[in-house]
């Protein structure tokens, strides 16, 4: 039973810490740009404000527009609860393997894009079109980089993959390095971060994610925003799980869990700091350079696969 309890705590932690993670990135960015920033808790304050505000809906919006935030939020939340953060072997991790995880995120995206198209303005359609286009290119790259790992672990089950990585003696694995680079590139794209999309933009012509949720307000907007924060958290945790799981708790003992929690937060902070640095240093890509960026990620992931076969699989 304790593992179920830990599972629930872990899922709640992911959901609740997600706004903090977003706040952390924007604070880091602010510091890097010599600003003070709004503070770590600002996303939380935003969400709280949105939850109590009145909802205003576009006049043509249908029931789909009103259900979409719930679908998007729940699909993302379920996906997040499947990802192990501290304890490697959680009961829910059987629910979905990595591929199912990607599909859950795709479900969220599907409804997000439909909601964008529902209001019948140019922005929504534009956002939906771009989001689906780029997601279509990002998904193979992401799966390819996951394949590299699952081929060596002979599994797509996250728990088994993590255990495999922890138990193999540390060695230089060029394939893993490739896979990780590809995964990082995809994660940036999937989360609508610079250089692919700018989460803080207010210039309609360049935005993707914001364009789709332009018409949302109040609790609907809060759910949408929260879902995208969870997604960032999820990707960061997933990258930690897949590529640097060392220190995660194999057994549910308090000491191991405490160490795992501490390490997880530390790794998370490291990744998010790297994101903030990248966002500060890089400029946003032109829209039609994004496909090249994503196909680059795919090529790198495929190179990872090839070098796995060439160098590591053994003849």
């Amino acid at each position: 039973m304790s593992s179920i309890l830990i599972q629930i705590i872990q899922a709640l932690l992911l959901l609740l810490l997600a706004p903090l993670a977003t706040g952390f990135v924007s604070t880091c960015k602010a510091r890097l740009q010599n600003r003070r920033g709004a503070g770590l808790l600002q996303p939380w304050r935003n969400l709280r404000k949105l939850f109590v505000k009145e909802v205003v809906i576009a006049s043509h919006a249908s029931w789909l527009f009103r259900t979409a935030p719930y679908v998007v939020f729940t699909a993302t939340a379920i996906a997040a609860s499947v990802v192990p953060a501290m304890l490697v072997d959680t009961p829910l991790s059987l629910t979905a393997d990595v591929i199912a995880l990607v599909a859950l995120l795709a479900l969220a995206r599907f409804f997000l894009a439909l909601a964008g198209m529902d209001i019948g303005t140019a922005f929504g359609g534009m956002g939906a079109s771009r989001e689906m286009t780029f997601a279509a290119l990002a998904e193979p790259a992401m799966l390819m980089s996951i394949f590299v790992l699952s081929l060596s672990a002979h599994s797509t089950n996250l728990t088994t993959m993590i255990t495999h990585t922890i138990h193999t003696s540390f060695a230089l694995h060029p394939s893993l390095a490739f896979a990780m680079v590809a995964m990082l590139m995809v994660a940036v794209a999937e989360n609508g971060r610079i250089p692919v999309d700018n989460p803080t933009t207010h210039l309609e012509l360049t935005m993707i994610h914001e364009a789709m949720i332009l018409e949302y307000s109040g609790r609907h907007l809060a759910l949408m925003e929260w879902a995208s924060m969870i997604k960032l958290m999820l990707f960061a945790t997933l990258i930690i799980d897949l590529f640097m799981p060392w220190g995660m708790a194999m057994q549910a003992t308090p000491a191991a869990l405490a160490i795992a929690l501490g390490l997880w937060l530390l790794k998370l902070a490291g990744l998010l700091l790297a994101l903030a640095l990248a966002e500060t240093a890089l400029a946003k890509l032109r829209l039609f350079e994004v496909p090249e960026y994503l196909s680059g990620a795919f090529i790198i992931a495929f190179l990872g696969l090839l070098s796995y076969y060439m160098l590591e699989a053994g003849v």
Binding site: L172, P174, A177, L311
Partner: peptide, 20 residues
Amino acid sequence: MNGTLVQQLVDGLAALMLLT
């Protein structure tokens, strides 16, 4: 195939070679 450190390094460099 976990050979010696030298081999691992060469393998890694080979992968980078391919990347370049």
